[in-house]
C-alpha cells in the first residue's frame, strides 16, 4: 500500500525526463502554467475570506453543540452513534475542524473501534462541500450554481449514512 506514496516522485521524474529529452520549449511551458496557477490561487483569497470567516463564526458560536443535542435522539434511533454528530455537522463546512474532530474521536474511542472506523470512512469518502463549491465556482466567477449545492448535500447525506451502514456490515 505504501507504493501509492511513490506515485508523485515517479510522476515528477517522468516530467524531468520529458524536460531533458523533448525538443519542445517545455521549460517555458512549465513557467507559464505555474504562473497561471499562482494567479488563480491569489484570486481565490476574497472568496475564501468570506467563507472561512462565516465558518469559524459558526464554530465559535456554539450552534454546532446545539444541533448535536437536537439531533442526538434521532441518530440513536437509526443506530448512528451520537458521538459522530459533531463530525457530520462540520464535515461539509470546514476541513480542518473535521480533521480535529476525527483526531479527537480516535483519541477517545480508539481508531479501531466502530466509532473510529465509521469516522474514518466518513472522512475518506466525503469532502469539504462548501469549500469546494466556493473555490471551484469562485475561481471562474460563477454566481448561479443551479442544482449544485442541493445535489451535493443530498449526495453527502446519503454518503454518510451509507458509510455507517457499510461499517456495520463490513467491519
Amino acid at each position: 500500500m505504501t507504493a501509492a506514496y511513490y506515485l508523485l516522485p515517479i510522476l515528477f521524474t517522468c516530467f524531468g525526463m520529458l524536460l531533458f529529452f523533448s525538443k519542445h520549449p517545455l521549460y517555458d511551458d512549465f513557467v507559464t502554467g505555474a504562473r497561471e496557477g499562482i494567479e488563480s490561487a491569489v484570486k481565490l483569497i476574497p472568496t475564501l475570506i468570506l467563507l472561512l470567516c462565516t465558518v469559524s463564526f459558526f464554530g465559535a458560536s456554539g450552534a454546532s453543540e446545539w444541533l448535536t443535542s437536537l439531533l442526538a435522539p434521532l441518530c440513536e434511533q437509526i443506530g448512528l452513534p451520537s458521538e459522530l454528530l459533531p463530525l457530520l455537522i462540520l464535515r461539509p463546512l470546514s476541513g480542518s475542524a473535521a480533521n480535529a474532530l476525527a483526531a479527537d474521536l480516535f483519541e477517545s474511542a480508539g481508531p479501531d473501534s466502530f466509532i473510529g472506523q465509521t469516522a474514518s470512512v466518513i472522512m475518506g469518502s466525503s469532502d469539504t462541500l462548501l469549500y469546494i463549491a466556493a473555490v471551484y465556482f469562485g475561481a471562474v466567477g460563477i454566481k448561479k450554481s443551479r442544482h449544485a449545492l442541493p445535489v451535493a448535500f443530498a449526495v453527502m447525506l446519503f454518503c454518510i449514512f451509507f458509510s455507517c451502514l457499510l461499517c456495520r456490515v463490513m467491519l
Binding site: 510522476l11 515528477f12 516530467f15 520529458l18 524536460l19 517545455l26 511551458d29 512549465f30 513557467v31 507559464t32 502554467g33 505555474a34 504562473r35 497561471e36 496557477g37 499562482i38 488563480s40 490561487a41 491569489v42 481565490l44 483569497i45 475564501l48 472561512l52
Partner: peptide
Amino acid sequence: IVLTLAPAMALWCGIMQVF
C-alpha cells in the same frame, strides 16, 4: 490556506501545461 494551496497550484498547473 491560499499560501499552502499556491505552491501546489503552481506545480500542478505547470506540470499539466508540459503534459
